[in-house]
Write a protein that binds this DNA or RNA. Structure first.
Length: 507
DNA sequence: GGGCCCGCAGGG
DNA sequence: CCCTGCGGGCCC
């Protein structure tokens, strides 16, 4: 059995610490090995620099190196062909690049294939999948993929073999692997789905060429927003999202609890502030980085972003009026600065808000203060403001409006209930009546505060809903719990409503 | 400080 | 696929 030196430099075979002249570093994985304990140590001194350890030479046997095997005999031709393209003065740089790519992607492998265009596209997809979904050990498509914290993927078996050899660094980038992951590697289920899809696309010959998505898996995203090569100008305006830190589903309603915050294990607290909308997105409070409403018209709205400085938005802290999407222009964006139809229906995001109103779903609220710095916001940035509910929806002069009220007074750990005029108050109280709604139509209303009542006999929560002169009862089992047995007036979210709408019983 | 343009993300 | 979106940087 051949074993390397451990982290302290002690040979795992002879249990001695070899002097540096007896230590060999693998050219691939840089792991130190005790030369005298090797079965076949390198003979010449010059070989020691190019020496590959038993593990690595086993993993990458030279004969199966993907590049060498496929192209070794015609690589001379390939270079000649590339030179020919380079020298062709009739081609633009773009055309040259395209030709080169065709050549490398194998479209030109079969001489002058006529369906090259279609084949190329398919190959592009498969190339990307090959590259991204390949295990660095066995060079095959990942089997039961395990992802390291540094973002590299390996087959479960390959990973376990590596760990079994006493390795505790990533085979790809040498970053330390935490003991927990080494001992209990978890299969990356999202990746499993991606692999399944890749296999499907590989096996299906028919069908149009798949589109190449520049998809970056969450684990592989940086901790901060970043700008791609394609987005020429720097800055966050065109930035891609960084890693999402919380583990809640994108359609998750309500607060983000500690158990979904593996990063800090504290959940997203009311009053938390991020530099911008992209950072806010990373903590799951509000996912769209431009749009103001996160939601699905058939499911409900998860969150809204309230940006200060719009005069028509009445903002009273614990309740505010919100104009639905499409009802205003995005400042400085000509495309949306069009005339509004005067007969809008509730659709898309507005319908999502209306549905949340009907069902009494909690809506997360984030506020930003780009223009107006109100006394509410001594700080800059985007602020998570806790859970609200949509109390009323209406349509007036073709514009949809929403009245959004604090759902429950959520006690937060880092400061007393913010955005309330009464700082002491973390109790529900009557809500102000909205003015000037005489000409409004389509009023969807939801009454009652707090919205959910606890029913001890069934240990469930019920809520009375009034809608279009009809009343019905919503039942949601075990949705809320009291913060403490002593203080029943202080409500707190413990468990968010079910992620699937099926689980919500309407009796 | 306003106009302009940009490109990402997500819904439908 | 197409469209839109209570961002945001930069230029004037």
């Amino acid at each position: 059995m051949e074993l390397p030196c451990d982290g302290a430099g002690i040979c795992m075979v002879c249990k001695n610490k070899p002097p540096s002249e007896e230590t060999l570093a693998c050219k691939t994985c840089v792991t130190p090995w005790h030369a005298t304990c090797l079965v076949s140590p390198p003979q010449a001194l010059s070989d020691t620099l190019q020496w590959e350890c038993p593990d690595c030479s086993m993993i990458h046997p030279p004969s199966t190196s993907a590049f060498a095997s496929g192209r070794s005999e015609d690589s001379g031709d390939l270079i000649a062909s590339i030179r020919k393209i380079e020298d062709d003065k009739s081609l633009t740089e773009q055309e040259k690049a395209k030709k080169r790519q065709e050549l490398l992607s194998g479209a030109a492998a079969g001489p002058s294939s006529l369906d090259g265009e279609e084949k190329k596209e398919k190959n592009d997809v498969l190339d990307i999948l090959d590259k991204e979904l390949t295990c660095s050990f066995c060079m095959q498509m990942l089997d039961r993929p395990v992802t390291t914290p540094c973002g590299h993927n390996f087959c479960l078996k390959c990973f376990q073999r590596w760990i079994g050899q006493g390795k505790r660094t990533c085979a790809y980038c040498r970053v330390q692997i935490p003991p927990k992951i080494a001992s209990q590697p978890r299969i990356n289920s999202t990746l499993v789905i991606a692999i399944r899809m890749a296999r499907m696309s590989r096996s299906s010959n028919a069908g149009g060429a798949a589109k190449v998505y520049h998809f970056v898996h969450n684990q592989n995203r940086p901790d901060k927003a970043y700008t791609t090569e394609r987005a020429k100008k720097a800055g966050k305006a065109n930035a891609c999202s960084g890693k999402i830190f919380v583990t809640v589903a994108p359609d998750h309603f309500g607060p983000i609890p500690a158990e979904n915050d593996p990063e800090r294990n504290m959940g997203v607290l009311v009053g938390e502030i991020w530099e911008d909308r992209l950072a806010c997105r990373q903590w799951g409070a509000h996912l769209p980085h431009v749009a103001g409403i996160a939601g699905q018209s058939t499911y409900g709205a998860q969150s809204v972003a309230l940006s200060g400085g719009y005069i028509d938005d009445e903002d009273h802290g614990e309740w505010f009026l919100y104009t639905g999407s499409g009802g205003r222009d995005l400042s400085g964006n000509k495309r949306t600065n069009k005339d509004q139809s005067f007969d809008q229906k509730f659709d898309k995001m507005n319908e999502a808000l209306r549905l949340s109103c009907l069902k009494g779903y909690p809506v997360r609220v984030v506020r930003s203060h780009k223009e107006k710095r109100s006394s509410y916001a001594p700080e800059t940035g985007v602020r998570y403001d806790g859970v609200y509910r949509i109390e009323k929806c209406w349509r007036k002069n073709g514009i949809q409006g929403f009245k959004v009220c604090r759902y429950l007074f959520v006690r937060c750990d880092n400061e007393p209930a913010p955005w309330t005029s009464d700082v002491q108050g973390d109790r529900p109280r009557p809500l102000p009546v909205i003015k000037e709604l005489k000409n409004a139509i389509d009023i969807t209303e939801r009454k009652g505060s707090p919205s959910w009542d606890y029913e001890a006999s069934s240990n469930s929560f019920t809520s009375m809903v009034h809608c279009s002169n009809e009343s019905f009862i919503l039942k949601c089992p075990k949705m809320l719990t009291f913060a403490s047995q002593d203080d029943k007036s202080c409500w707190m979210w413990k468990k968010p409503p079910p992620a699937s709408k099926k689980e919500l019983l309407i009796v």
